[in-house]
């Protein structure tokens, strides 16, 4: 059993990390008052841009191609999210419909471009990110083996982003203003905060995070873009809600979901786990999210002004 946990742990973490980052992106957007159902599409855009960039550059510079790919995925994710921000903030559009449009545009345009640029709907990369064992820390008993052996550099990058995002949201003026826009935009406005600008920045940050998250999934786990994010973006959305729109809640939620998904993915290979039917493990994240929504219905932590377009003239 203990060995099993040691075996599964690296995979569970690798699965958690892209979810965590995407969910954090969603946190920024929703905390500023903009629902982001488009996370799935933003991730898919990151997957495509990441896979394409890496597949084109890895022959010339094998060492840095992965990082160039990750960076460009974040940049294009941010640019693509502008479309959502423009609809939701400038045009006062229905945020849910715009998010759905983002998902559909992403799945159509990425495959279109993949076919046009590479001749096939799938884009493969030859070398992903390699796992590394951190010298001294991996000698710590138990923890060292769980966390510091066979870890990806991106894992540490994302955990750093988690810490930075928490600091940014709760300890800085920027974070306070951003959260105010999601709770009571009129109050924020009368205190001199530019609600439109804050919401634009929040949605752009969510695009960068989701794009990077998608590309991390490519370089660590899947190794190819195949035209779908397979519901990862929606899983991140579920984690955001299950984590009650709080960074540490999101960390716990994504880790739970990551572990459950990993067990379901490998359960057929490992006899001990084959007894647990996959159907329960795979539906687990969505079922617990529904239960969490029911339980928190009386005291929901959701941002108060979420989903409402900000209209200066309305009081």
């Amino acid at each position: 059993m203990v060995d099993l946990i040691y075996q599964l742990f690296p995979y569970a973490i690798a699965f958690t990390i892209p979810l965590l980052l995407t969910s954090l992106g969603g946190l920024f957007s929703e905390r500023s008052g903009v629902i982001n159902i488009g996370l799935e599409g933003l991730m898919l855009m990151g997957m495509f841009v990441g896979a394409f960039t890496i597949s084109q550059t890895e022959a010339a510079n094998p060492g840095t191609a992965v990082w160039i790919g990750l960076l460009s995925a974040a940049v294009f994710g941010a640019i693509f999210a502008l479309l959502h921000a423009f609809a939701c903030v400038t045009l006062n559009a229905n945020q849910v419909i715009s998010g759905i449009a983002i998902n559909m545009i992403a799945s159509a345009v990425t495959v279109y471009l993949a076919r046009f640029l590479t001749g096939s709907g799938n884009v493969q990369i030859i070398r992903g990110l390699s796992r590394q064992t951190i010298p001294l820390l991996s000698d710590i008993p138990v923890l060292g083996r769980l966390f510091f052996t066979q870890s990806y550099a991106t894992t540490w990058l994302v955990l750093f982003i988690l810490a930075a995002a928490t600091f940014l949201l709760y300890k800085t003026k920027f974070g306070l203003r951003l959260r105010a826009c999601g709770e009571h935009p009129h109050a924020a406005d009368s205190a001199g905060v530019n609600v439109y600008l804050m919401r634009y920045m929040a949605v752009i940050i969510s695009g960068a995070c989701a794009g990077l998250g998608g590309a991390i999934f490519i370089v660590t786990l899947s190794g190819e873009f195949n035209g779908t994010a397979a519901g990862l973006g929606f899983l991140a959305l579920a984690a955001l809600i299950f984590g009650q729109w709080k960074p540490w809640g999101i960390l716990a939620a994504t880790f739970f979901f990551g572990f459950a998904s990993t067990i379901a993915n490998v359960s057929q290979v490992i006899p001990t786990l084959a007894q647990i039917p996959g159907i329960y493990l795979k539906t687990f994240p969505y079922v617990v999210t529904l239960i969490a929504l029911v339980l928190s219905s009386k005291s929901s932590q959701a941002p108060k002004a979420i989903g409402e377009p900000y209209d200066k003239g309305k009081r």
């Binding site: 419909i97 449009a101 559909m104 159509a108 495959v111 279109y112 076919r115 046009f116």
Partner: peptide, 14 residues
Amino acid sequence: PPEVADTIIATIIY
């Protein structure tokens, strides 16, 4: 590529 049709539909939603 055939995905142009899906792009048109997605843009209409947008």
